[in-house]
Amino acid sequence: KELVSALYDYQEKSPREVTMKKGDILTLLNSTNKDWWKVEVNGRQGFVPAAYVKKL
């Protein structure tokens, strides 16, 4: 599985998104959309802005 690192804090703005803190390591589930990537963090799945994470 592919991992990404959070470059910035992000506070979810809808139920489809997830909150992350800078430095968090997230499991990348889907990166086909260039703007929003689906990740899993702390057992929750949702979307984060692609520009806020980088692949490890």
Rank of each mutant, 00 (worst) to 15 (best):
Y52W: 08
V48W: 01
K22R: 12
A50E: 03
K21Q: 10
G23H: 06
S5E: 15
L7C: 12
E40N: 04
D9C: 07
R16I: 12
L29I: 14
N42Q: 09
E17H: 07
N33Y: 09
E12T: 09
W36V: 03
G43D: 06
Q45N: 07
P49I: 03
D9S: 10
Y8M: 12
E17A: 07
E17Q: 13
L29A: 02
V41I: 15
E2C: 15
W36Y: 08
T32C: 14
A6S: 05
K34F: 09
L28W: 01
V18C: 10
K1Q: 12
L29V: 11
V18M: 11
T27A: 09
E17C: 08
A51G: 12
A6V: 09
A6R: 00
G43L: 05
V48G: 01
G46M: 05
L7Q: 07
K13G: 09
I25H: 05
T19Q: 04
M20P: 00
K55F: 12
A51C: 15
K38T: 08
D9G: 06
P15E: 12
V39T: 01
P15K: 10
A51W: 11
P15W: 12
V53S: 00
K22H: 06
L28H: 00
N33S: 10
A51S: 13
W36A: 02
K13W: 05
N42G: 12
V53R: 00
T32L: 10
I25Y: 05
L56Y: 11
Y10I: 01
P15L: 10
G46A: 04
K54P: 02
V39N: 00
D9W: 04
G43W: 03
K54W: 09
L7G: 03
L7N: 04
S14Q: 08
A50Y: 03
K38W: 15
K21Y: 11
K54A: 13
K38L: 15
T32N: 13
L56N: 07
L28G: 00
N30G: 07
L28Q: 00
V41C: 11
L56K: 06
L56P: 06
A51Y: 10
V39Q: 00
S14C: 11
W37N: 01
R44G: 03
S31L: 05
G23M: 03
V4T: 05
D9R: 03
K22D: 02
K22F: 07
G23L: 03
V4N: 02
K55S: 10
E2R: 13
V39W: 01
E40G: 05
L7D: 03
A6Q: 00
K13R: 14
L29Y: 04
S5Y: 15
Y10D: 00
K21L: 08
L56W: 11
V39H: 00
L28C: 06
L28P: 00
L56I: 14
K34C: 12
S14A: 08
V53W: 02
T19G: 09
K54N: 09
T32Y: 10
Y52N: 05
G23Y: 06
L28T: 01
Q45L: 08
L29F: 04
N42S: 09
L3F: 14
E40R: 07
N33D: 14
F47N: 04
M20F: 11
Y52G: 07
Q45W: 09
S5N: 07
R16P: 05
I25P: 03
M20K: 00
G43M: 05
V4I: 09
R16A: 12
K34N: 12
K34G: 11
M20V: 10
G43Q: 06
K34S: 13
Y8Q: 12
G46S: 02
E12Y: 05
F47Q: 03
Y8R: 14
K13P: 04
Y10Q: 00
Y8L: 10
E2F: 13
S31Q: 11
A51R: 14
T32Q: 13
K55L: 14
K38C: 14
N42Y: 09
D35E: 12
K54M: 14
N33E: 10
K13V: 09
Y10N: 01
D9A: 07
L7H: 05
R44K: 12
E12P: 15
T27Y: 14
V18T: 06
E2G: 10
Q11W: 13
Q11A: 13
K22E: 07
A6H: 01
E12L: 08
N33Q: 10
K22S: 08
A50V: 06
L28E: 00
A50W: 02
L3N: 06
K55A: 10
R44W: 04
D35C: 15
G43Y: 04
G46R: 02
T27P: 13
M20L: 09
T19D: 03
N42R: 11
K55M: 13
V48R: 00
K54D: 08
S5T: 15
R16S: 13
V53Q: 00
K55W: 09
S14F: 07
F47K: 02
W36S: 02
W37G: 00
E12I: 06
K38S: 08
L56M: 11
P49G: 02
S31E: 14
P15I: 10
D9E: 05
Y10A: 00
A6M: 02
K1F: 14
L28V: 08
S5F: 15
S31G: 11
A50D: 01
A50M: 05
K1G: 12
D35G: 10
L26P: 01
L29C: 07
L3H: 09
V48A: 03
G23W: 05
V53N: 00
V48M: 01
D35T: 14
G23S: 04
N30S: 13
S5Q: 15
W36N: 02
N42F: 08
D24P: 00
L3T: 09
K22Q: 11
Y52T: 07
K1M: 13
V18Q: 03
K55E: 07
V53E: 01
A6K: 01
V4R: 05
R44F: 06
R44L: 07
L56F: 11
K1T: 13
Y52E: 02
L56H: 09
L3M: 12
K34Q: 12
T19C: 06
E17K: 04
L26V: 08
K13E: 08
F47W: 15
L26D: 00
L26E: 00
G46D: 00
D24I: 04
V18L: 15
L26K: 01
A6G: 03
N30C: 13
K22L: 06
K54T: 14
V41M: 13
I25N: 04
V48T: 02
P15F: 10
K21F: 11
R44D: 03
L26R: 01
P15H: 10
S5M: 15
S5C: 15
V41Q: 09
R44C: 06
Y8S: 09
S14E: 09
L56R: 06
K38N: 07
V4L: 12
E2P: 11
Y52H: 07
P49Q: 02
S31W: 10
N30W: 08
V4K: 01
D24V: 05
L26G: 09
V4S: 04
R44P: 01
Q45I: 15
W36Q: 03
L3R: 09
V4H: 06
K54S: 12
N30H: 08
G46F: 08
D24Y: 05
Q45P: 06
Q11I: 15
G46H: 02
T19S: 15
S31H: 09
M20D: 01
T32A: 12
Y10K: 01
V18W: 05
D35A: 11
G43V: 02
S14V: 05
F47I: 07
W37H: 03
W36K: 02
V4Y: 15
Y52L: 13
Y52K: 07
L26Q: 00
P49E: 02
S31K: 09
A50R: 10
Q45V: 15
N30R: 07
S5A: 15
R16G: 14
E17N: 06
V39S: 00
K21A: 09
P49W: 03
Y52V: 06
S14D: 11
D35N: 14
F47A: 02
E12H: 09
L3G: 03
A6W: 02
V39A: 01
Y52I: 07
P15M: 09
W37Y: 08
S31M: 11
Q45E: 12
